[in-house]
């Protein structure tokens, strides 16, 4: 771990609005990383040890479907958090993740983050609140996709 300055962490969209002083305990748990295009970040079913705050780039969440190749279920980009399963330890990764382009991010060590949050409930609350907001947005997007809005609407009607 090389650490990321709290001021730099505060500049990430996920942590926007949190004062650097509050983020200071996360600094030693954070590492700036670069993933190359095509690099697998984690595998479905593997143990969770970190999560990432994407700075620039694109990451696909995918899953292996027997008889087909990896199927992308969602893509993430600048300002997104990659990895929410750490909120429910010891849940393994539910999906895999692969970089679709060169991607820079802050990688955070889950064990350290969880320990810090136990000691600092205000920091923990802020992190969980932001993670819940991200999860909520993804849930809403998934519900919209379930509506299958672009399917042919009414086989009896012709208007378009």
């Amino acid at each position: 771990m090389t650490g990321v300055a709290p001021e730099e962490l505060a500049g990430h969209a996920f942590l926007s609005g949190m004062p650097p002083a509050l983020l200071a305990p996360l600094a030693p748990a954070s590492t700036p990383v670069t993933m190359q295009k095509g690099e697998r970040i984690f595998e479905e079913g593997a143990a969770v040890s970190g999560f990432w705050l994407i700075r620039h780039g694109a990451v696909a969440l995918d899953i292996h479907v027997p008889g087909r190749r990896q199927i992308i279920v969602e893509t993430l980009g600048d300002g997104d958090i990659l990895g929410l399963s750490w909120l429910s330890p010891p849940l393994p990764w539910q999906f895999g993740a692969v970089a679709l382009a060169e991607t820079t991010a802050y990688e955070l060590d889950v064990a350290t983050v969880l320990a810090v949050c136990e000691r600092d409930p205000l920091l923990g609350y802020q992190l969980v609140r932001r993670a819940m907001a991200a999860a909520s947005r993804r849930l809403q997007a998934t519900r919209v996709r379930l509506l299958d809005l672009y399917a042919a609407a009414d086989q009896s009607g012709d208007a378009q």
């Binding site: 279920v73 997007a141 919209v144 996709r145």
Partner: peptide, 16 residues
């Protein structure tokens, strides 16, 4: 909304 084999673009709703 639904990626096919070999799709490497965005997957998600247009508001994203």
């Amino acid at each position: 909304d639904r990626a096919a084999d070999g799709w490497h673009g965005h997957v998600g709703v247009v508001t994203q």
